[in-house]
Design a protein around this nucleic acid. Structure first.
Lengths: 336, 336
DNA sequence: GGGAACTTGGCAAACGTTTGCCTAAACTGT
DNA sequence: ACAGTTTAGGCAAACGTTTGCCAAGTTCCC
């Protein structure tokens, strides 16, 4: 009794409308779905009036069971606290909505077990597709891919390879960062990275170093330091610490994410090192807040706001039974 | 054919398992739900083995239709891009998950029409409850409240009054900010606010001004400026601009949100005004990033990470048929 | 040995939709 | 007038579960 009060006092269904209108459920269903040719104009009008006065709304659960499509898409994201992830979530949500879908959001905390748990749970919910941001390797994911479930990978590629992907050319982003610093005349360079890095951060760092070698720096001339930790903020701080431990700060430091750059910045502040005067820091993401409170940071802007549309495009491709593709969006170096 | 490939090649249902096991659907259903006393130990084992080898997972849609509970909760939030909102979303998601629910996330962009559209859509999805962050007044919302739908309001109270609420004592937060600045000896004070402000920001500003009057400042001694705009970042910038237009900067400035404080900070930077040396800025929220890149900002910390548990508590109260209550969480002034 | 109680499990009705098929009645053309 | 077509709408099966009720068979107690 009290348990189902959430349904409203009057769970008005097709049957309710049909009874009031004196027609069959089938007829009401057809009218609801716009198939007006199967009923006389008077019937249609009578039923439509009743629908609006009774406030009838099709029950999606019944519809899903019958039609076998839920219009629900699951998004699995690691830590939503990361502004970049939140940006992706917002963008995808908006794009899905305008395509008539709703999004179930799952925070995997970057853990393989939680990712699997969610993948299972979402399958139970009969979701129509998955958007997996920064996927980690896991059995459940491999199984879903093998099953042919429609999955769009965002940020990181499918750990098992293949499939739909939306992101940027991370290697190229690293190259662009290197070119920028080089053209400014910096030669004492350093890079920090997360130890349990994903393909995305690895590529950024890889591109950065490879480019510098191409430009004439020896591999050892580029100082490198990794660290591990929960958040990129802490990773950036710790990595920077081990980088400058007892040594002078480099002229410029490349961090494969803005959060890591923030971590490095904190250490620089503690060391009274001025950014960017004494040490330039360059990150990746270009968080919205940078323009307001971190103008000292140069960053490779990733157009997260454009991800949503591409993700939905890819989902539609997969739903059509065609193979997905890689969508690389343009990034842009922002200097303030 | 291709259309339903997402279901997997073998949509294994109770019927599948039952057929293989040579028992009825009912028996399998009972075993799945742990009602083992209704079958012989051998049957139970045989069925359970089959369940795991076939990879059977209960279909939530069928279950929802029958049981009339979807274990889905809808969260309506304005702009997820705001780190505070993202923090709430993350916290609520985690709390819901550990209570066995999943969350559908809807970004209302602070628009009444979108809020209504989502409320309708979620009702169709037969969600079991709603978490509405910074609700705006709308017909659909009033209707949902009147219907007795379980709704927990977060951040802003129910515009129509009453109901469950999770948030902080905003008036008190304003008071605390005033006390802090006063105790530091500042007497030339100012405050900015959004023109189309919510009850939350109004209360913060109201408490701030009321306290200063109590302390002996006349109302006119507190400089005030409002502005409107899409984002609090821009509002903060514009309000600060109109505040200092041709006049000296105050000793301290209260902004009812961190984002507004960031906006004011940008203007201060453009005016070569040092923060906090020449002008102290105090915000509300205490964004995680403050410790890393905005140590100049004093802020009233809102424990967003604790919101999730309280929200779920309130939902459970509502589901039990009891009236919800107001949950005011403790805030804390953070000075760096 | 006979009723009571328990064990094991099946039947079938719901939950709200959608949709292929059927059927009358009305209309059309010749 | 009669066959053929169109119109208007109902029937019932399915989608995957859950669960109240019923029915045999077994055990137990006196």
């Amino acid at each position: 009794m009290t348990k189902q009060r959430w349904l409203g006092k009057e769970p008005v269904s097709l049957a309710t409308v049909a009874a009031q209108a004196g027609v069959s459920i089938a007829t009401v269903s057809r009218i609801v779905n716009g198939e007006t040719r199967r009923a006389s104009p008077e019937t249609v009008e009578r039923v439509q009036k009743l629908i609006s006065t009774l406030g009838y709304r099709p029950n999606h659960v019944g519809r899903t069971l019958r039609r076998r499509e839920s219009r629900i898409v699951a998004m699995l994201s690691p830590n939503l606290d990361n502004p970049a992830m939140a940006g992706i979530a917002a963008s995808v949500e908006t794009a899905l909505r305008s395509a008539g879908y709703v999004m179930i959001l799952c925070d995997t905390h970057d853990r393989a077990d939680l990712q699997d748990e969610y993948l299972h749970a979402m399958r139970s919910q009969v979701v129509q597709g998955y958007v997996v941001v920064n996927a980690v390797q896991s059995d459940g994911l491999s199984a879903a891919v093998a099953r042919g479930d429609p999955i769009v990978f965002v940020g990181r590629r499918n750990p098992d390879g293949g499939g739909s992907f939306v992101g940027i050319d991370n290697w190229r982003a690293g190259i662009d960062a290197a070119d920028h610093l080089w053209s400014r005349g910096f030669r004492e360079l350093a890079v920090t990275y997360p130890l349990q890095g994903s393909s995305a951060t690895r590529d950024r760092v890889g591109g950065f170093i490879a480019r510098l070698e191409q430009l004439g720096l020896t591999r050892n001339a580029v100082r490198q330091a990794g660290a591990s930790g929960l958040s990129h903020l802490e990773v950036g701080y710790a990595a920077a610490k081990s980088l400058v431990d007892g040594r002078p700060w480099p002229q410029a430091l490349f961090c494969p994410s803005d959060l890591m750059a923030y971590g490095a910045y904190r250490l620089a502040s503690e060391h009274q090192v001025q950014v960017p005067k004494e040490c330039s820091i360059i990150g990746v993401d270009d968080n919205t807040l940078n323009a307001w409170i971190a103008p000292w940071l140069t960053s490779v802007r990733i157009p997260y706001g454009d991800f949503g549309d591409r993700v939905v495009e890819q989902l539609q491709v997969l739903w059509a039974g065609e193979p997905g593709s890689e969508q690389l969006l343009p990034h842009e170096l922002i200097v303030r």
